[in-house]
Design a protein around this nucleic acid. Structure first.
Lengths: 143, 143
DNA sequence: TAAATAATATGATAAAAATCATATTTAAGA
DNA sequence: TCTTAAATATGATTTTTATCATATTATTTA
């Protein structure tokens, strides 16, 4: 479904949403363990996310990763988009070049409503909203 | 979303549904081109599908691949299941061990209805039905 | 301004998925 | 029964994804 990388990225960003702030930065080693992702791996991903403007960081002592208020409003889709690229979610299920409502592939008609729905959710749901769910005990972020 | 292998497999099976029958078998070289999949690759996939009972074949002269009447009633899901395994479609979006309605991951609540719907469709839709759509011009299988 | 600490840039290695190649087996027909 | 045509079994190669490792750069604080 999603790549490992983007799953890890979402977990990392969500962890930051729950535990960091402008003046409460978190070092990579303190992120890796609780979200159960190899440190060197999540480190690389976080760096990419910084470049994409999804999360923030400062280096040196007292440095680390965090989410600015702005960052908290990014959507889940933009995380996936910066790690996996958009196509993973939007491409034709059979990878036919020309697949649209006019010339749908055999799976298009039956699946595209659900796929559209998923995409719409991912494009509107923000990190902040997901974090709120966790805070309120409506969802969980272990392992 | 799906692996290349399972996309190819679906295209191959659908092609057989449209063009083959018990007494009209098709050789792998005549399948590969129209569905635009490397011959050696689709050959291997078709062999797996035979082993799984999804399609049929006989070897030697006049041999080839085909769908029995029974084969035409297999679901899209069983194709995906024999190539990719079930988990690809059913696993937690964040790969958390324990993710269910009781202890949902942050994506579970918002996406599981759509995912369930997709799964339900794949589990009920048969190859025969998809082929009929194509025959009636409601969907297309090129490239 | 030097030492220590953290992210960053870069790239090496390992594992999995995708792709390619071929010797072997089975069935048909001469 | 021999030849030929087809799938089958097996495995090699290539590409992509996942994972690991480290030298460099920036920032804080003494």
């Amino acid at each position: 479904m999603l790549s490992n990388s983007s799953k890890y990225a979402i977990k990392g960003v969500l962890f930051l949403a729950l535990n960091s702030s402008e003046d409460r930065k978190i070092m990579v080693k303190d992120i890796a363990k609780p979200i159960n992702v190899p440190q060197a791996y999540i480190a690389k991903l976080l760096q990419e996310l910084v470049k994409e403007g999804i999360i923030s960081s400062t280096r040196g002592p007292k440095g680390g990763f965090y989410l600015s208020e702005r960052n908290k409003n990014v959507t889940v889709f933009s995380i996936l988009n910066s790690i996996d690229g958009e196509k993973r979610l939007t491409t034709c299920m059979l990878s036919l070049e020309k697949c649209d409502n006019d010339k749908p592939c055999p799976l298009h008609n039956i699946l595209s409503p659900s796929r559209k729905k998923i995409l719409e959710i991912l494009k509107t749901k923000t990190v902040k909203e997901l974090a709120l769910d966790v805070k309120q005990g409506h969802s969980y972020l272990p392992l």
